[in-house]
Every structure is written in C-alpha cells, then in structure tokens.
C-alpha cells in the first residue's frame, strides 16, 4: 500500500529549478534510498516533503491525504518526521529532553508527561544513547547527535521517517551501527526514506533507490538495477 505519493513536484529558486517534476512513491514498510551528486536537490526534496519549503508546483499525498503546502508542525502531526543533514539537535537541552520534546509535541499532546518520559527513555535505549541521556546534546559526538535526531523524530510516532545523511563523517564502525539502526527502525514498523552518500551502506539497506541529478529523477530501481544502470554510472557512480 502506498504511503507517500509525490506527483510532478517542482521547486524554483529564482529562475533555477532545484527540484524539477519529480514523481516519487514510497510504500508502507519500505526502505527507499535517495542518492545523487551534491547539489542534485535531495535535501530540497526533503524540505518540500516536510513542509520547510512550499513547492512551486506539484502535489504531495501522504496516507491518502493532500499535504501540499501544510506547515512543518502539521506535517509532523500527520506522521511524517525528519532528521537534518547538518544536525539540529536542541544543543542546550539534555539528550532526554530532546526526545521528550518530540514525544510531547509530535503526538499533538495525546501523551501524558509520564508516558512521554517513558517513551523518551525507551527511544534513547533504542538508539543506544541511554548512557548519555542526561548530557547536554551539544556535548555529544557527531554520530550520537545524529542518533539523537533519529530518536527525537521517532518520538513523534511517524509512519514515514526522512533521514538526511545519517552516516556522513562517521568511521566504519559507526557506519555499521547506523546501518543496524535503520534496519531496526524498519523492523519496528516505520517506513524510511533515506539520503545517503555511503554507497555500500545504501546498497545493502534499501529496497529501492532513486537517483536525482540536477533536480530531476534520472533513475529508479532496485540496488542491483541502479548499480548496473548505464545512466547512473555515467553521471554519478562513475565519477
């Protein structure tokens, strides 16, 4: 069943199309990868999906509902959460307060403070940050800040999680841990759309992969198909 359906989405900055007529479909339970060279429009696409930017044209349907043009907090409440390419944790707050904020505000206030606290503790455990729960988020390592963002996003109880570069700048051990985390997120029932530059990782965790280039979708398919696609190899992998 399709969770997210995007039709012909376009974003112009001045005369420049950062994202141009992109169609995209994510089914429930999938892990879909989004790759492309720097400046291909991947993060812009995430910004459009999560409401940070308004599309110039095109439509976004999420869980059979038109969410085009909604504000970020409304989209979050619909069940679409995200992380950021350049980490945006609440630096002065503790790790557990970060996740608590997600649990309390992401769920439209359905949760009592006590439940939210429990949920925050569970998610910190889930991403492996229980030990640093009381530390200010700005004191965490980059890898841990990225995990914290995932936990904060998961706390809003999303059906779809957009992950923007979980593995950039991490060492091989941390990359392996990050891959395990994505697998665990999928296992607990959250669909994932992920931007990633670490090729080995994205090839092994994704069911399908989309390739963006100059704001346009130039290929889509299984990791196998993408790895052997002539177009993709030419514009991206070959370089």
């Amino acid at each position: 069943m399709s969770l997210l359906e995007v039709e012909g989405i376009t974003k112009n900055f001045g005369g420049l199309a950062a994202v141009s007529h992109v169609d995209l479909r994510v089914d429930e339970g999938e892990v879909v990868g989004l790759i492309g060279p720097n400046g291909a429009g991947k993060t812009t696409l995430f910004n459009l999906l999560s409401g940070a930017l308004k599309p110039s044209s095109g439509a976004i349907r999420f869980r059979d509902e038109n969410i085009t043009g909604l504000k970020p907090h409304q989209i979050c409440h619909k069940g679409l959460a995200r992380t950021f390419q350049s980490v945006k944790v609440f630096g002065g707050m503790t790790a557990s307060q970060n996740v608590l904020a997600g649990a309390i505000f992401g769920d439209r206030g359905q949760m009592s403070p006590k439940q939210a606290g429990k949920e925050a503790a569970r998610l910190l455990e889930f991403v492996g940050l229980s030990a640093v729960a009381a530390a200010p988020a700005r004191d965490l390592t980059l890898a841990n800040q990225k995990r914290l963002e995932v936990a904060r996003a998961l706390a809003t109880k999303p059906n779809l999680l957009l992950i923007d570069e979980l593995m950039a700048g991490l060492n091989p051990t941390e990359v392996a841990q990050a891959m395990d985390l994505v697998a665990a997120i999928r296992k607990q029932g959250t669909t994932v759309l992920i931007i990633e530059h670490v090729m080995k990782a994205i090839m092994s965790i994704c069911d399908r992969i989309l390739v963006l280039h100059h704001g346009e979708k130039i290929a889509e398919g299984t990791p196998q198909e993408i790895a052997t696609s002539r177009t993709v190899v030419e514009v991206y992998l070959g370089e």
Partner: peptide, 18 residues
C-alpha cells in the same frame, strides 16, 4: 519546553511538531 526548543532551533522545533 516548547519555548526552550524554539530558542535552541526554530526549524528543528517546527519539525518536531511545535
């Protein structure tokens, strides 16, 4: 808590449902 989150980062706060 919402105010504090906003002070730390408005974008992140908005995407966290605030």
């Amino acid at each position: 808590l919402a105010l504090q989150a906003i002070g730390e980062g408005e974008d992140a706060a908005a995407h966290t449902g605030i």
